[in-house]
Deep mutational scan, measured.
Amino acid sequence: PDEFRDPLMDTLMTDPVRLPSGTIMDRSIILRHLLNSPTDPFNRQTLTESMLEPVPELKEQIQAWMREKQN
């Protein structure tokens, strides 16, 4: 489902985090971005790792969907 895909890389998220802007991304992708630029890739506001907020409900939904697909 589209809501499980990272908006920057269009890959399935495994550890979704919410940026201060409200955008949800995969943690590994935003951390890689932050190594090059300490900004939100969508609005260029300053962004640090400590500002990332886990989204455990979405992570659980993704994991359940993945388990379902394996069966």
Rank of each mutant, 00 (worst) to 15 (best):
M25S: 05
Q61S: 11
P20C: 03
Q70T: 14
R5V: 12
N43W: 00
E53Q: 14
S21H: 02
R32W: 05
S28G: 14
I30Q: 03
L8A: 05
N71F: 14
E57K: 11
Q70N: 13
M51K: 02
S50W: 08
D40C: 03
K69R: 13
T46H: 15
Q63M: 10
T23Q: 15
T14M: 12
M13W: 01
M9H: 09
Q45R: 10
R44T: 09
R27S: 02
D2T: 11
I24Q: 07
V55Q: 11
R44G: 15
D15G: 01
M13E: 03
P41M: 00
L31R: 12
P54V: 01
F4T: 05
T48A: 08
Q45W: 07
S21W: 00
T11N: 12
Q70R: 12
E68I: 02
P54Q: 05
F42K: 10
L52I: 04
T14G: 07
Q70G: 14
Q70M: 06
W65T: 00
L47E: 04
V55C: 10
F4S: 03
M51Q: 09
P16Y: 01
L8T: 11
N43R: 07
S50R: 13
P20G: 02
Q61Y: 05
M25N: 11
S50V: 08
Q45V: 12
T46V: 11
L47A: 04
P7V: 02
G22E: 04
S21N: 10
Q61F: 10
T23W: 11
P7I: 04
E53K: 13
L35C: 14
T48E: 13
R67A: 15
E53V: 14
P41C: 04
M66D: 09
T48W: 05
T23C: 12
R67E: 14
Q61V: 10
P38V: 00
Q61L: 07
I62L: 03
F42I: 12
P41W: 00
D15Q: 01
I29Q: 11
K69Q: 14
I24A: 07
R67F: 13
P20S: 00
L58F: 04
D6A: 10
Q45L: 07
P54W: 03
P20Q: 00
R5E: 09
T48S: 13
W65Q: 09
D2P: 14
P16A: 00
Q63T: 11
H33F: 05
V17D: 04
G22D: 03
W65A: 06
L52F: 03
E3K: 13
M66S: 10
V17G: 00
P20A: 00
P38T: 12
T39A: 08
L47T: 04
L8R: 02
E3I: 15
T14P: 04
S21C: 10
D6I: 02
L35M: 13
R44L: 13
T11D: 05
T23G: 07
D2E: 15
Q45D: 11
L31D: 06
S28I: 12
D10T: 00
M51F: 05
P56G: 04
L52Q: 11
